[in-house]
Amino acid sequence: MQKQVDRLHKNAGRAWTRPASRSLLREIKKNGIAYLFILPAMVGIFAVILVPLVQAIVISFKRYYILDILREDPPFVGLANYAAILSDPQFWYSLKITIWFTFACVALTMLFGLLIAILLDQDFPGNNIVAVSVLVPWVIPRVASSILWKWIYDDQFGILNYILSKIGLKSFASFPWLARAGSAFWAVIIVVVWQSVPFVAVSLLAGLKTIPNEVYEAAEIDGAGFWQKTTLISIPMLRNLITILIVMSTIWDFKVFDQMFVMTEGGPAGSTMVLGIYTWMMAFGRLQMGLASALAMIMFVLVMIVTAIYLKLLMREETL
């Protein structure tokens, strides 16, 4: 026993005097098997995500028209692709509507998500049925729900126009939702919000459940009503969770592709051409891989700024 203690002391002394680099090497050697465990995952992420990211950076400095590739190596053109994009009015338009789209989707998703979470947090008979129904829009594959909503929005026989004209809004009797610039934009927002709310509502509900009932009861005794309980207790106590959900939704909605592509393909007349669609079309419609990569890099930088905020918040919340 005494021997062991002595050895511990000796080792501790050695650890203090050992140069940092050798101890790092030893740590790595000691944990050799750990690196074997994570190897397959890391190889996959390097080969399929990080290496392509570097390639995308390189391509963004090249004139890379895919049909030219057969004849010559794509030449470096410096910042020409970036210059072309920054002077392209379509880019600025796309950036503007992408930001508006993201802002509207996030704001509406958070608002309805919070309202539904508060509703589900109440004790009432039938609560479970409502909780399960809320999940349904999340379950439907994005492409299927986009086609479904196209049918709902149909100008002649769509159920939406039927309901609107039934409740007295006769001017909507054959309103072409997806064929007009403004309404197409909002029509897609509704679909994206419809599909994003369940996740936010379920996450917020889980958060609300962690607030002890006593807190509300104490507030009730002090005469707090529903509004005060929500704004002075629920929202402040869930501040971190709400911030994380806002950042996550911002990133997701900024990258929107599926619903927009299926419902409008960026139309009518390019009016819903968000950056996600514009970049894809530049690459696989116009085959301008260089320009498309430069666009993608701009998207990447914008998303990474938001991601950095997200990771910082998450580190505060979660212990690695």
Partner: peptide, 9 residues
């Protein structure tokens, strides 16, 4: 969080 558009090209 990477946009798929970056990787896909």
């Amino acid at each position: 969080m990477f946009p798929s558009q970056v990787i896909i090209i």
